[in-house]
Computed example of a mutant assay.
Amino acid sequence: MNWNHLTAKDQIDQIKLSSADKPVMLFKHSTRCSVSGMAENRLERAWNAKEMASMDIYHLDLIKHRDISDYIAVTFDVPHESPQVLIISDGKCIYHNSHMGIAYHEIKRVFESLTTV
């Protein structure tokens, strides 16, 4: 996966704007959590770049950037969890899941529902 790395709060504001043109996925990862490592690995192994070419994807190391994770929770009105995946469209979180609920087929289903309207 070709992750864009979240390292500043102002990127979240830009993501809200850019999500008007195409969906954005955020993956919040804890480097201290084995479940987070498994979720990240499962997602990376299943990811099909051709199928998801028009979705921007972002990776947040929430140990280094807990402030950004908290900002995401407030901005998109979702509880903080780790690991966690969010899909942003038109400036809003339209899907989120965490832990072993993070699955490529679900992300793809949501993505396809946005692109086949």
Rank of each mutant, 00 (worst) to 15 (best):
T7C: 06
T7Q: 09
A8D: 13
A8K: 01
K9C: 08
D10R: 03
D10P: 02
D10G: 01
Q11H: 07
Q11D: 14
Q11M: 13
Q11Y: 08
I12V: 11
I12G: 03
D13W: 07
D13R: 13
D13K: 14
Q14A: 12
Q14Y: 06
I15Y: 13
I15P: 10
K16F: 04
L17G: 09
S18T: 13
S18C: 11
S19W: 02
S19P: 10
S19H: 07
A20F: 15
A20K: 15
A20T: 11
D21M: 08
D21G: 10
D21E: 11
K22D: 13
V24C: 11
V24H: 15
M25N: 14
M25W: 12
M25S: 09
M25Y: 09
L26D: 09
F27R: 08
K28C: 00
K28L: 02
K28T: 03
H29S: 01
H29K: 03
H29R: 01
H29Y: 00
H29N: 04
S30G: 07
T31M: 00
T31Y: 00
R32E: 12
R32D: 05
R32L: 07
C33L: 00
C33K: 02
S34V: 06
S34T: 07
V35H: 02
V35C: 04
V35E: 07
V35G: 03
S36H: 04
S36W: 02
S36Q: 05
S36L: 03
G37Q: 13
G37K: 11
G37P: 00
G37I: 04
M38W: 11
M38K: 09
A39F: 04
A39W: 02
A39M: 02
E40Q: 12
E40N: 10
N41R: 15
N41I: 12
N41K: 15
R42L: 14
R42I: 08
L43G: 09
L43Y: 06
L43F: 09
L43W: 05
L43K: 04
E44P: 04
E44I: 11
R45L: 15
R45V: 09
R45Q: 14
R45F: 15
W47T: 09
N48D: 15
A49H: 12
A49K: 13
A49T: 09
K50E: 15
E51C: 08
M52H: 05
A53I: 10
A53S: 14
A53K: 12
M55I: 08
D56M: 06
I57C: 12
I57K: 14
I57W: 07
Y58G: 03
Y58L: 03
H59F: 15
H59W: 10
H59Q: 10
L60P: 05
L60R: 00
L60W: 05
D61M: 02
D61K: 01
D61V: 01
D61E: 05
